[in-house]
Simulated scan of single mutants.
Amino acid sequence: MKKAGAVIIPTIIAAFIIGYMLFRVWDDLIVAVQSATPSYLILAVVICVLAWFLRGFRYQYILEKLLVRINMWLSTACIYVSQTANLIVPARLGDLVRLLILRHEVDATYSKGLSSLVVERFFDIITIAILGAMALPFALNMPEWFSTVIAFTLVLCFLFLIILFAFGKLSSTNKYINLVLNLLNEVKQASLGLYATGILGVSSIIIWLTDSAICWVIAMMFQQSIPFIIIILAIVIGNLVKAVPLTPGGVGTYELAVALTLEVSGTPAAIATLIAVIDHLVKNLITLAGGIVSLYVFGEWSVDLLKRAFSKGLDKGDMV
């Protein structure tokens, strides 16, 4: 019952947010939809698929730094499956599915799988925070909490780097402390070399600019000439808000944050709402399609593994 509630309640919250957003601009939605040029959706889908393979390339590189050798198709499929799980499982726990896939496919330890996730998430968060800080001066009349959220995120990233440098090479006789120290050491190994930082930094910037381009193309679908820098800021705020795991996949909270940013910048409320909803819908549908294909490629074992992971959780005894 508790497990069902953990999924149903966040889903209801997401549905309520989306419903409220659409209801408040309902009278203008029909006019906005009629002005749309649907062909832009094709371009948005193509860019979205490209963005996934860019993520696959980056994840493959992270795993290689941890001495886990896989091809880009497998690394992309890992991300597809875990992100598909995140559309259903609350608190982004779907990411842990990657640990199971890597263990099954290439016999990677859970520790290395978890370290790869930490590195990927760190570069995602610090990249969008930096892009947001760069975009903020070009955006007028933005709420003060935008800068607070971006600054807070940058501070957290800086503190994490300090922890890596301070504890990355230590060890302990305590089993659990040593697991944490080993995790930090693997994260440091995968990300803090000059060359590795450059590759991961540049690829992360390209990934998030590509992600912003999807929203920009959807804005053009409604004949909106929104400056790309504003689109970047909207995507940044949307993803930082989405990082708080209130709903599965950030559905509802992401749309609300993106629409608010676009609306404050001068985009009509109805069109801002449609851009935000369609942007997230395209990204989530591509995620779902890629996840289904990836499960088919991995085989029936992956479906059974997902069911076991969601019903029982990872075996803590194996996470070494």
Rank of each mutant, 00 (worst) to 15 (best):
W26L: 10
I230R: 02
A77M: 09
V97R: 08
S82F: 02
T37V: 14
I79N: 05
I205V: 14
F138A: 15
R58V: 01
G238W: 00
V25E: 03
C78R: 00
V241A: 12
V97S: 13
C78Y: 09
L262F: 07
V46T: 08
E144S: 15
H280W: 03
Y176V: 14
A32K: 02
I88T: 13
L99G: 11
F167E: 06
P38Y: 08
Y40D: 02
C215H: 01
A257G: 10
V320H: 11
K112P: 01
A196R: 08
E186K: 08
P268E: 05
G317Q: 02
D318C: 11
M72W: 07
I162C: 13
I42D: 04
A4G: 05
Q34I: 14
I275D: 00
L102P: 00
S115Q: 05
I150M: 14
M220N: 04
F146Q: 02
G94L: 09
S116A: 14
E144D: 09
A6N: 12
V297T: 06
S172V: 06
Y61E: 09
I237H: 01
A272P: 03
L181M: 10
A139E: 04
K169Q: 12
V264G: 07
F222C: 15
A272V: 04
S172F: 05
Y195H: 12
L170Q: 10
L74S: 15
T84S: 13
S172I: 08
R58G: 01
V187R: 08
T76Q: 08
P10T: 04
T247A: 06
A135E: 03
G201E: 01
L66N: 04
L22K: 00
L131P: 05
A166N: 08
L131G: 07
V241H: 02
G313N: 04
G198H: 01
P137M: 13
T173D: 10
V244N: 06
W216P: 05
K175Y: 03
V244E: 00
A166Q: 09
S203E: 01
L50M: 11
S203Y: 00
I177K: 06
V81K: 11
L262A: 11
T273D: 01
